[in-house]
Write a protein that binds this DNA or RNA. Sequence first.
DNA 1: CAGAAAATGATATATTATAACATTTCATCA
DNA 2: TGATGAAATGTTATAATATATCATTTTCTG
Lengths: 158, 158
Amino acid sequence: MSDLFPKKGHDHDRCVNSALKQAEKVCMEENARFTDMRRKVFTLIWQSHKAVTAYELLDALTSEGQRVQPPTVYRALEFLTDLGLVHRIESLNAYFGCDRPDCEHLGQYFICTQCGRVAEAVNEDMSNAVLKAAAQVGFSIQATTVEIKGLCHDCATH
Amino acid sequence: MSDLFPKKGHDHDRCVNSALKQAEKVCMEENARFTDMRRKVFTLIWQSHKAVTAYELLDALTSEGQRVQPPTVYRALEFLTDLGLVHRIESLNAYFGCDRPDCEHLGQYFICTQCGRVAEAVNEDMSNAVLKAAAQVGFSIQATTVEIKGLCHDCATH
DNA sequence: CAGAAAATGATATATTATAACATTTCATCA
DNA sequence: TGATGAAATGTTATAATATATCATTTTCTG
Ligand SMILES: [Zn+2]
Ligand SMILES: [Zn+2]
Ligand SMILES: [Zn+2]
Ligand SMILES: [Zn+2]
């Protein structure tokens, strides 16, 4: 059994740095500006493996100094989600950093209701099943939401 | 190709009446009270094949007579969703009547972004893919959300 | 019918998100 | 270089969704 969730005590700075690198690359390629605010929001989102709400981001940005208003955060989130650098978790009204912003994929998430961690899966079987089901009923897909809640392996066994 | 979505001009009263019958049966079996308010909310939800927001329900109930407050509607929705008579569509913050409240299933929805209609699918391939993906990573499922947005066959072809 | 439990009413407030307009920053090119 | 227009951010207000808490009414049970 392979665990999607990061190991306890892993080098998380490495996660964040690698995500920043990828984000810079994607922005460069898309000729999009990775501004200070966008970078701050992106970094805050990557500071844990949990999903983060817009108002948690607001609070974090505000405690860093001057008051930041909702539209500022929502704009950064829109930018990041449009580029695929961040995904919105619909069932949590929260945002989560994408591991693989450079490859097209249908978002699929495992969400642990105990520890709060989220893991993105890119599972061919699930993707294919969704695509096939849609084809069978003549439905042309624009976006998909697959969110699976439960206990991660760590939480289920401890 | 089989279309999940109801045919234009179908006998919708029949949909509603059959849903009410099923709801009564489920409540009876669960020894749960299908009160006036719950019945009203349930019926309103079934009055279209679209998802309905809590505040749309509030407005509808209020225009029927005296003012109804949010908690009243949210309580009815909680009751109905707990029993599986209604599902919440996370990506719309809206509610939708379940076709098959009498059989266990993972909720899977097709949501047309053009006409607004929603269709519940009960697709074994999708369910199995989700269950298998979870098993592979040692994740024990509590709830799943599968919401597929796009164009229904009618909207895609007209 | 009394008493307990369940449901609803009422009031207030929390949480999530967007609209609209002002100001600042930044790339571009005359 | 510095005018200029587009993009980004700031600011204020408000919309949309959801819940906490306590009071009252209704229903069930004995
Ligand atoms: Zn990490
Ligand atoms: Zn966990
Ligand atoms: Zn119908
Ligand atoms: Zn349609």
